[in-house]
């Protein structure tokens, strides 16, 4: 019964993924991804860009509100959340809706403030040059919590993310590569296939394994640890893991 439900779920997921894949066409031919992260930008160059901001904003351990709010600890902060600062109604509403300043939201805001927050009081036309924005973000990031001390603090680099290709399900996995990658999985999942609070992942049919991992990657399956792990695996890597775990212990 459970097996049946599971198979129904899988076939629905295959359909969902086929749909997503159709949307993601054009990424065919991408090679191994996820090799190295990219730095956000050059914080020293960002310090030069900061001069334009510093007329209104302060940053650093003793920063206070000026014309604009202080930007120390901006990464991970809810929008419009500095107590007593006279934010625009739009900005306050963004915060109430739960929006948080991240690399993505800050980048969009700095590029064109009104695109993200239509009624913002920040009188700034936006910074078109993506390199200057990246450098500024790298500079700002230095003044927020460090993940080594507070693991949940915002990322300090951009992952080199893989792109889905149409041929995903046809990839033949390399079990030797899968064995290497598997060491990350077996920190939690038992290599002998037993299920103790964390499910077994051995001896699955390759295709089921691949589909399940892409479902995490597309955030169709909800578990946050698995979403994170899957999100940085390339198609080849997922196929390799499927090939390895599919025969483990036989």
């Amino acid at each position: 019964m459970i097996g049946l439900v599971f198979h129904c779920m899988l076939s629905r997921m295959r359909e969902a993924i086929a749909f997503v894949l159709a949307l993601a066409l054009g990424g065919a031919g991408q090679g191994l991804a996820g090799e190295t992260a990219k730095a956000i930008g050059d914080p020293e160059a960002g310090a030069e860009v900061w001069i334009f901001c510093s007329g209104c904003h302060q940053i650093g351990p003793d920063a206070e509100a000026g014309i604009g709010p202080p930007l120390t600890g901006i990464f991970g902060r809810r929008m419009g959340s500095i107590e007593g600062f006279p934010y625009s109604r739009s900005m306050t509403r963004m915060g109430r809706d739960g929006l948080v300043w991240s690399l993505e939201t800050l980048d969009a805001y700095i590029e064109n403030p009104r695109v993200l927050v239509s009624g913002t009081r920040m009188s700034f036309d936006g910074l078109e040059n993506p390199t200057e924005r990246a450098d500024l973000l790298a500079f700002l990031r230095e003044f927020s919590d460090k993940p080594s001390n507070i693991p949940e603090a915002a990322p300090t680099a951009r992952a080199d993310r893989p792109v889905l290709s149409e041929a995903t399900l046809a990839i033949v996995g390399d079990p030797a590569y899968g064995e290497y990658l598997s060491s990350e999985c077996t920190t939690c999942h038992q290599r002998d296939g037993s299920d103790r609070g964390i499910p077994s992942i051995t001896l699955w049919p390759d295709e089921d394994f691949v589909v399940a991992m892409h479902a995490y990657k597309q955030k169709l399956r909800p578990h946050p640890v698995m979403q994170m792990m899957a999100s940085r695996l390339s198609d080849e890597e997922i196929a390799a893991l499927a090939a390895y775990f599919g025969k483990l212990g036989l």
């Binding site: 993940p147 693991p151 603090a153 990322p155 680099a157 080199d160 994170m228 999100s231 940085r232």
Partner: peptide, 18 residues
């Protein structure tokens, strides 16, 4: 709390988390 990390030239950098 958890995160994944990748190597840059300079350091092991956080790229994602929850």
């Amino acid at each position: 709390v958890g995160a994944s990390y990748q190597a840059t030239e300079e350091k092991i950098a956080k790229v994602d988390g929850f």
